[in-house]
Design a protein around this nucleic acid. Structure first.
Length: 591
RNA sequence: GGGGCUGUAGCUCAGUUUGGUUAGAGUGCCGGUCUGUCACACCGGAGGUCGCGGGUUCGAGUCCCGUCAGCCCCGCCA
């Protein structure tokens, strides 16, 4: 029987319960213990007149987090003693028998955190993770996670997908994130890599005829961490053969509908709207627009350029544009706040940002110098500026203005309460196949190198790689990339051309990806799919910002496991077995 | 790799600005009183390497330098 599920309908029944002592309240005579298990809390009552003396005596010695097994009757609480705050507040358990299965030492951190009390530091919570995980709030996160995962499995299974596992010990692939490496004992000097994702395996499964595959897959990337990035994380990995974008989007949307409905009992609006990458970067300055803020970036070059305002005219003459967005009611912002947008824009890589306020009398602020009798009315009529509004402008090439406008739009949106409630989903499509490495200018894959280009021959792709679009897409939720995928390149010649653009010689291509290209020679179906970040989705569902709160045993920002002490040094003997000698002596061997 | 914040009792924090007697509070823990509590209440008690190392000073929790850890951010994360 479960503590949290007993209600008044159980009155009079004898129950056997086991759980942890959450709190004890000792009145001297009558004593109460809150017993907790995964389902919740229930009050145990110990009264001298009605409970055996040895049970009373044992109850007096109980400590928080002792583990109990009890037997007793469910009784309605006396009038006036009902606790309406509590799910089981109408009843209590009259204990007849009690066994202490395990006692607890004094706790380093409390499980029963008082309502007003701050949680212990993240460091202690991670070090004593089993205690932290006992907190009902955290347990609820894992209930949601389980329900969501279960719903995804059920939905995909029902849609005809087959769950297949792929290797953890795999081959290193260049490109992308740093790999976690595993030395081979049998082959000294060679290393397995832990998978950054099952990407190539799932494509090979398509060639193998498993035309609808999915996996709840652990992915590992050896990069620096953030609140929303862990070195190992979980993706719902999906791949389908004989499909185009509509099929993939449909499968993903149906899965998400099922996940939200069985987990949170909520319906989400599908199909999700779609937006091209070009529209997203033009109107929102980013490929992951937060559509909860409905301000859109517009081009003011025509109306404000050529008015003798050097900053704008100079940027336009250099091939850039003056882009900006209208902030309704933004004129209420203080002068010092507005002056700070310039710094924010510079931090984001632009030369700066300008602003002007629209008042009944006219336009004021640094950018108002570009307003004359002709432009003022156009701003009001074509761009909808009315008294009390603010116009934010960034001049320069798109590569500078887009990131700055994105940052300012999100900052000001949050400050002015312009972020709508709820979720705004959007598919962003038609990404460029390559983008330029900011340092070297060399082409790098903007999604990944196995993405199908749009309407291009291998020769044309090699001749002008940056003009090529791809059939990659992202699912963006409230400004966060939740899933991404693509229709894959199943044409060997095109795939070779892509890898060549990325700087690989044909010999390197064969050495690294020969197994993929060879498989493609024997009848490869067109295919595509997506991968969805399960940890991020669950974090969103339970409304927390840190992935650590939805992962049972997460790592710190320095990628350590504080509870178990990972990573750790190893014996020289073990290293010798692997054919490895350390360049520098390790700091501490702990075994 | 870089920037920022934090580190004082088991836990959460005050004290650091302006160096100065014995470093405080709440909570937890220990002992006691209490027969309807629900963050029980009340009385008493124990509990401190002020993260660590070095420096300045007559004197450092407080100032300076270094270092470690946690968190947030940039780079990075196809």
């Amino acid at each position: 029987m479960a503590c949290g599920l007993i209600d008044a309908s159980w009155t009079g029944k004898t129950v056997q319960l086991a759980g942890w002592v959450h709190r004890r309240r000792d009145q001297g005579g009558v004593k109460f213990v809150l017993l907790r298990d995964r389902t919740g809390l229930v009050q145990l009552a110990f009264e001298p007149e009605r409970t055996p003396a040895e049970v009373i005596a044992a109850a007096a010695r109980l400590n928080p987090e002792d583990v109990l097994s009890i037997r007793g009757e469910v009784e309605a609480r006396p009038a006036g003693a009902v606790n309406p705050e509590m799910a089981t507040g109408e009843i209590e358990i009259r204990v007849r028998e009690m066994e202490v299965l395990a006692s607890s030492d004094p706790l380093p951190i409390l499980v029963a955190v008082p309502p007003e009390e701050e949680l212990p530091s993240e460091e202690l919570r991670l070090r004593h993770r089993v205690l932290d995980l006992r907190r009902p709030e955290l347990q609820q996160h894992f209930v949601v996670r389980h329900l969501a995962t279960n719903a995804a499995r059920a939905s995909l299974s029902q849609q005809g997908f087959l769950e297949v596992e792929t290797p953890f010990l795999t081959r290193r692939t260049p490109e992308g994130a740093r790999d976690y490496l595993v030395p081979s004992r049998i082959h000294h000097g060679e290393f397995y890599a832990l998978p950054q994702s099952p990407q190539l395996y799932k494509q090979l499964l398509m060639v193998a005829g498993f035309d609808r595959y999915f996996q709840i897959a652990r992915c590992l990337r050896d990069e620096d961490l953030r609140a929303d990035r862990q070195p190992e994380f979980t993706q719902i990995d999906v791949e389908m053969a004989f499909v185009a974008e509509d099929d993939v989007f449909g499968a993903c949307e149906r899965m998400l509908v099922d996940m939200f409905s069985s987990t949170l009992d909520r319906t989400i609006p599908v199909p999700f709207p779609r937006m091209t990458w070009a529209e997203a970067t033009e109107s929102y300055g980013t490929d992951k627009p937060d559509l909860r803020i409905d301000w859109q970036i517009e081009d003011f070059s025509g109306v404000l350029g050529g008015r003798g305002f050097g900053i704008l005219d100079g940027a336009i003459a250099a091939g850039g544009r003056a882009r900006g967005f209208v902030v309704p009611g933004g004129a209420s912002l203080s002068r010092s706040r507005l002056d700070a947008i310039n710094d924010a824009a510079r931090e984001a890589g632009a030369k700066g940002a300008l602003w002007m306020k629209c008042t009944e009398e006219g336009f004021t602020g640094p950018a108002a110098r570009a307003v004359d009798e002709e432009t003022g009315p156009v701003l009001r009529s074509d761009f909808g500026l009315t008294a009390g509004d603010l116009l934010v402008l960034v001049a320069g090439p798109n590569s500078e203005s887009s990131p700055a406008l994105d940052v300012l739009r999100r900052q000001l949106g949050a400050e002015l309460g312009a972020v709508a409630e709820g979720e705004r989903w959007v598919w962003v499509t038609d990404f460029p196949l390559f983008e330029a490495d900011p340092e070297t200018g060399a082409p790098v894959a903007s999604h990944h190198p196995f993405t199908m280009p749009v309407d291009v021959t291998p020769d044309a792709l090699l001749a002008d790689p940056f003009s090529v679009r791809s059939r990659a897409y992202d699912l963006v939720l409230n400004g966060t990339e939740l899933a991404s995928g693509s229709i894959r390149c199943h044409v060997p010649a095109l795939q070779r051309a892509i890898l060549e653009v990325l700087g690989m010689t044909p010999e390197q291509v064969d050495a690294r990806f020969g197994f993929l290209l060879e498989a493609f020679r024997y009848g490869v179906p067109p295919h595509g799919g997506f991968a969805l970040g399960l940890d991020r989705l669950v974090a969103l569902m339970v409304n927390v910002s840190s992935l650590r709160d939805v992962i049972a045993f997460p790592k710190t920002t320095a990628a350590r496991g504080l509870m178990e002490g990972a990573p750790s040094g190893v014996d020289d003997e073990l290293l010798a077995d692997l054919g490895i000698r350390l360049a520098a002596k390790r700091v501490a061997a702990d075994e």
